[in-house]
Design a protein around this nucleic acid. Structure first.
Lengths: 225, 225
DNA sequence: TGCAAATAACTGACCAGTCAGTTATTTATT
DNA sequence: AATAAATAACTGACTGGTCAGTTATTTGCA
């Protein structure tokens, strides 16, 4: 019974006929989520009050509870909103590709890196990781709707590449960690500890360095000194 | 003026002479920290009350404030206690090694993986990452006392390997992310999302798969089809 | 007896969630 | 077109509960 974030009563899209009466409020839930995302990201869930969210969205505290039944529902709503596009992106790229997985991996890693600075996109997963302890349901929701869809697809892509002889014999599931891990670590170092690599100031250098090592490492064994 | 965790007044080591033991307390601060670590890890900092920590340590709430001036000081104390051994471990392994860095990297990664399941060791960095938003001073302390010592050493190891021609031309700082990132990602997947790889149930498979790719990827370019 | 160690009761601040009441917008009536 | 009735959108004061930190008091060793 918990965390129904979706339109408790707002007539967002009840029936196509009957525009009945509208008013200047329709995008309200979205505005509230925007405010919540900004504050949760900056100060964390626990240290953000509902009133702060309300004020930032230009509403009163009470109005927030018109759209969301609880503070946690704000978190859930945030995840919901971010969930579909992310998973779809990954799946769209992978599709039913056959052949050397490396070009697809390059595209995927590139897309992730490109979005890593966009708060609107990456703030949500970061939030989920941070708040997973205090709100396990949120973590599970994210897992079910994003990870359980995207990771198997990626593993399939790798397995297919191994079978086709395009890359060396590796464990597909474990190799996922080798593909995405460096990106995640870079993110954590930058976000949590404000560590920027002295050399490459841009994400591009990271991607380049990472993929050079990774792709050479995935090369099928043939010439072994 | 904030977060002086160290013995505000506990007579831990005031003068060497005078073995006369007080009530029954000397290891008290450590016991409190043990309790705090367990609870912070399980429920998170915000959702743990000082009274819970006290009860678990077999003390009253007030007694905790005899040893630590604030709740945040518990976090700081935890980090302090874990800081020295971790950094020392890494530095001890790296030392002034010269030659192919891969054996050293193998040893390092192996040690990290071996400790990844030991809560006593890895709970603290996980905690730091999680609570960094609400307590930036803690994150900075961890950074200064661990990362700023260990990471440059690791980067130096790699740079030296590149110069010596033992591994291919890579950016040392960025390559750190390629070495440790997969481990971190594995940790996050397991801890936050309870995702276990279907294949290898043990960490060993991960390390093996990761290092196989990494080391092949670091091989100096010579035979290029 | 004296005094540190420890306690338990207490205080004040904070905040999620509620609700009685107000304002803005739409519909109905003339 | 003007006005009244209806109702959706919103407000902000209030409540109940939690909890970090403090203080008055007790305990027990020397």
């Amino acid at each position: 019974m918990a965390y129904e974030s979706q339109k408790p009563q707002s007539p967002v899209k009840d029936r196509p006929r009957k525009p009945k009466f509208r008013r200047r409020a329709e995008a309200r839930p979205d505005e509230v989520l925007d405010a919540a995302l900004a504050l949760f990201t900056k100060r964390g869930f626990a240290h953000t009050t509902v009133e702060q969210v309300a004020k930032r969205a230009g509403l009163s505290k009470g109005a927030v509870y018109l759209y969301f039944p609880s503070k946690k529902a704000l978190l859930a709503g945030l995840v919901r909103r971010a969930v579909v596009p992310v998973a779809d992106m990954a799946l769209g790229v992978i599709a039913d590709y056959r052949g050397d997985p490396r070009p697809v991996i390059r595209q995927l890693v590139g897309m992730l890196a490109a979005n890593m600075n966009d708060p609107k996109v990456f703030a949500v997963p970061k939030l989920v990781i941070r708040e997973a302890v205090g709100a396990p349901e949120i973590a599970q929701m994210y897992r079910e709707e994003v990870l359980d869809r995207a990771l198997p697809a990626l593993a399939g892509l790798i397995a297919q590449g191994v079978e086709g002889g395009h890359i060396r014999q590796v464990d597909p599931e474990l190799t996922i960690r080798s593909i995405l891990g460096p990106l995640m670590m870079h993110l954590v170092m930058a976000e949590v500890f404000s560590i920027q690599s002295a050399s490459g100031l841009a994400l591009d250098s990271l991607v380049e360095n990472h993929l050079a090592i990774l792709f050479a490492g995935l090369e099928p064994e043939e010439a072994k000194p």
